[in-house]
Write a protein that binds this DNA or RNA. Sequence first.
DNA 1: CGGGGCCACTGAACCGGTTCAGCAACTCCC
DNA 2: GGGAGTTGCTGAACCGGTTCAGTGGCCCCG
Lengths: 339, 339
Amino acid sequence: MAKETIAGLAKRLGISKASVSYALNGQPGVSDLTRRRVLDLAEELDWYPSSSARALSRSRAGAVGMVLAADPLLIGTEPYHMGLLTGIETALAAGDTALMLRMVGNDPVQERATYERWAGERKVDGVLVFDHLLDDPRPALLDRLGLPFVLHGAPETGVPHTFSRTTTDHAVDATTIVDHLHAAGHRRIAHVSGPHRFVHEAERVQGVRERAAHHGMEVLPHEANYALLAGQDAVTALLRAPEAPVTAVVFGNDLMAMGGLLALRELGLRCPDDVAIISWDDSLHCQLATPAVTALSRNPGMQGRVAAELLLAVLDTGAIRTESMPRSELMVRASTAPG
Amino acid sequence: MAKETIAGLAKRLGISKASVSYALNGQPGVSDLTRRRVLDLAEELDWYPSSSARALSRSRAGAVGMVLAADPLLIGTEPYHMGLLTGIETALAAGDTALMLRMVGNDPVQERATYERWAGERKVDGVLVFDHLLDDPRPALLDRLGLPFVLHGAPETGVPHTFSRTTTDHAVDATTIVDHLHAAGHRRIAHVSGPHRFVHEAERVQGVRERAAHHGMEVLPHEANYALLAGQDAVTALLRAPEAPVTAVVFGNDLMAMGGLLALRELGLRCPDDVAIISWDDSLHCQLATPAVTALSRNPGMQGRVAAELLLAVLDTGAIRTESMPRSELMVRASTAPG
DNA sequence: CGGGGCCACTGAACCGGTTCAGCAACTCCC
DNA sequence: GGGAGTTGCTGAACCGGTTCAGTGGCCCCG
């Protein structure tokens, strides 16, 4: 079946292309009768507008892009990103916008090249950007490229920003976590975080430090890279250290928490009796582990939805807005239960 | 900066649009000198072809689509799909093709509507289809829509097919699994599979049955739905049954295997001493569980890459081809280790 | 009754590429 | 020296929509 076009519909009805276009788009300039006839015929021939023709004449791609820049190995195992993706897609589908996905190994150059191409080819109308970095070059780049974007997970700081973003209050999360450990009697803890070049990690580290100080607790910070092995190594190193041992470890994600658990087992230490464990991300891993791991549930699906909806609004209105993420919830499980 | 266009380049160089186009696309019809001048200028102004204009005139979108039709809850937790996605994206990026992603809850109507729209709007050049169903309506639908596709995970059966697909030999996998259990001394096992409406599940069930018969083993089949809870319930039901208990359970995916493990724990049974467990999908869950779960590693990343490359080839040549998936590998772990 | 305003509709330009037919100049060969 | 073939280039049509500047007919009102 040859594709129907607007010209085809017009010819069949004996009217002009322009009228057909107006009718189909609900624009004024056609009588109700004509509009009905057009819509009925379009329905009957199941006509759809050619997305490329429409994109060309409207100068709008009808799609937004997302670059997943992370170790492919991590992405496959970390449920956080998948949850995010699901939420994003839900919001975009509702807004009749397509999602263009690109995965690049943890490579800033490729991420940058992708944005440049997308902007140059006008392939997407905007992008979602993740994992805000210290001195992040991407906002400036995207501004220069004229590509609208939403930065997901920017700091909560009150500084007025020149771009749209979603924020999470990591200080509040830190307080939740530290208070929980303090209440369980811990006075000396370790914090195995992700790389500090991520703004959210820097904020978490600071948040934990400050809240711990507030309680008069001691914190051993340890920077790692989110991998299972990193969590394992961190715990091994921390507990072999000559200083008085910590009684609890906070992990920056679920994978490292799992690694920590393995390390404890190898060291012959019991969790939570000898060392308690808590993860900054909840996931099935935390629920299934033995003992089940206490974790902060951040609802990635909701976060994705909010971010995507914000991007759609930005594309629509051009406004610059900031959206706060809903509060996280601590899922208390056996790994921190008073022994 | 206003976007450069081919007309702009042509004007600056004092030549025609046509020549510029030929030069940029490596087509004959321009002198080497002119070609160089065009390419240099394009480089200098960093010009990119407008994807929509190109799509319109070439009648090719430069993108392929993929509908992830599964329970969003499952998708987030099952690493299989994410691995697949990573592989697909890798292959597409190499082929300069964009990936359009749509997630629909486990809803055939929405999946169908998505294909119809994509075809009608000519938004994608082809699609990747997953989870072959018994009496799958999708091949016929896509043929009718004129949308090229690759069906991933079709049966290995020798019947000549009218479409391109990738196949997995589930009988071989079943043999691997059953032989492993037989060698460990099991004679009566259960097989907790996914829904039989999936062709691959039907084949696995048959494969397990036949291989077990070959060894004179007994198999209790149990159809479930891939969810954690389903695995849990299945094991509870199977082991409470009045008949002689099984000594091993084969699970259709890692999640159900985890559920099975939980159920065993609740029933006070030890794994592998009382009941051995084996999963048809490997993942971090299997590796982290206590005991670690023996699983068939199917390399989803590789599968995705092969499927995507096949689709690109199909789009290029229009040929109908079948690609076999590489052999799976059994990762033997504690859950089936002779007690 | 005449003029202003509105309504329904149309032709043509436009978005930014690709591609075809045509044409001038130049080479080659008998 | 003249016809055939090649090379390098151009103008214009085309892909399938959107949109602007008319145009004619009709109604309303002073």
